[in-house]
């Protein structure tokens, strides 16, 4: 397959990676066996969001299906930093592709600890910072506010020389302004979009949420055109590479994200319908345009 690409110094075999939280390579290897390693669907593997302390995640139900997509309130369950490094990283290091670890903290100090610990591990090629999280001190979504994000990156950027990707939230008035702040504060790349805040109504209790976590985030093809607009808006304002995602289901969708200004694309929800979607999309992307 042609289409090799350099992304922040990582030599990727093709421009399709997974979106954080939508593919568990360890579980998938248990299900599909070593065939998964021989035929890994993505050119890099992005972890689910890792936090400093373990998190159980939200109470079920966690998913609600909508027209052309889904709303999730998974709630970032994970083993916590120490558990991730001890239990998951050794298996993930055996994957045939570079590893990108996605981390999130609610105060700068937490993010600094996460980034320093990840920076120390040679198995990890790059860091993605999930900033779709309220600052517990100010209540502001870090990634929704350019100044909040700049303050966070001022603390975090000096702690690692690994490529630092800032995953932007679409739930903000002006995503391009946040992207500009990320670039100015030393981010090596930005990725977008994360899920769009959404609500699913309970079937029998008026006004109550269906999802155990209350509100959720919408993903899948239903959000793809919102993603394209946001990718294009960011691409007009920054020069650092962009990881484009949101509803990508096939090679044409990936091409449109690249044409909007993305350097590589990430596939999320489509992998739930087709575990090898990443590989299929890379193949379709490499085929000549018709």
């Amino acid at each position: 397959m042609s289409g090799a690409v350099d992304f922040c110094g990582l030599a990727l075999e093709h421009p399709v990676i997974n979106a954080s939280g939508t593919f568990d390579a360890i579980a998938a290897q248990r299900v599909f066996g070593d065939a998964l390693l021989a035929d890994f669907p993505f050119s890099a593997f992005v972890s689910k969001t890792i936090t400093l302390e373990p998190r159980a995640g939200n109470p079920p139900p966690r998913i609600y299906e909508v027209a052309g997509g889904m709303i999730n309130s998974i709630g970032l369950p994970n083993r916590g930093l120490a558990g991730y490094l001890e239990h998951d990283l050794p298996s993930l290091a055996a994957l045939p592709v570079p590893l990108i670890v996605n981390v999130m903290g609610s105060v700068a100090d937490e993010v600094v600890q996460l980034v320093e610990a990840v920076d120390a591990r040679a198995e990890i090629a790059a860091i993605e910072l999930n900033v779709s999280c309220p600052n517990v001190k100010t209540g502001l979504d870090i990634g929704a506010d350019p100044d909040e994000l700049a303050r966070l990156l001022a603390a975090v950027r000096p702690r690692t020389r690994k490529p630092l990707i800032v995953k932007l939230t679409p739930n903000t008035a002006d995503v391009a302004r946040v992207a500009v702040a990320a670039e100015a504060s030393g981010a090596d790349a930005v990725s977008l979009i994360n899920t769009l805040r959404a609500f699913a109504a309970h079937s029998t209790r008026p006004g109550a949420p269906w999802l155990g976590g209350g509100t959720g985030g919408q993903s899948g093809p239903a959000v793809r055109h919102v993603a394209l607009a946001q990718i294009a808006a960011v691409a007009r304002r920054v020069t650092i590479p962009i990881v484009g995602m949101g509803g990508i289901q096939n090679g044409r969708h990936a091409r449109e994200a690249l044409d909007a200004g993305a350097c590589i694309v990430a596939v999320g929800t489509e992998s739930f319908r087709d575990p090898l979607a990443g590989q299929r999309i890379a193949r379709e992307l490499a085929a000549p345009r018709v």
């Binding site: 939508t22 593919f23 995640g57 079920p60 998974i74 575990p275």
Partner: peptide, 17 residues
């Protein structure tokens, strides 16, 4: 039974306590 998006451990949607 539980609501499932993927069936192969990818989404963490199908949990029970």
């Amino acid at each position: 039974e539980s609501g499932m998006a993927c069936g192969f451990g990818a989404c963490y949607g199908c949990v029970v306590p």
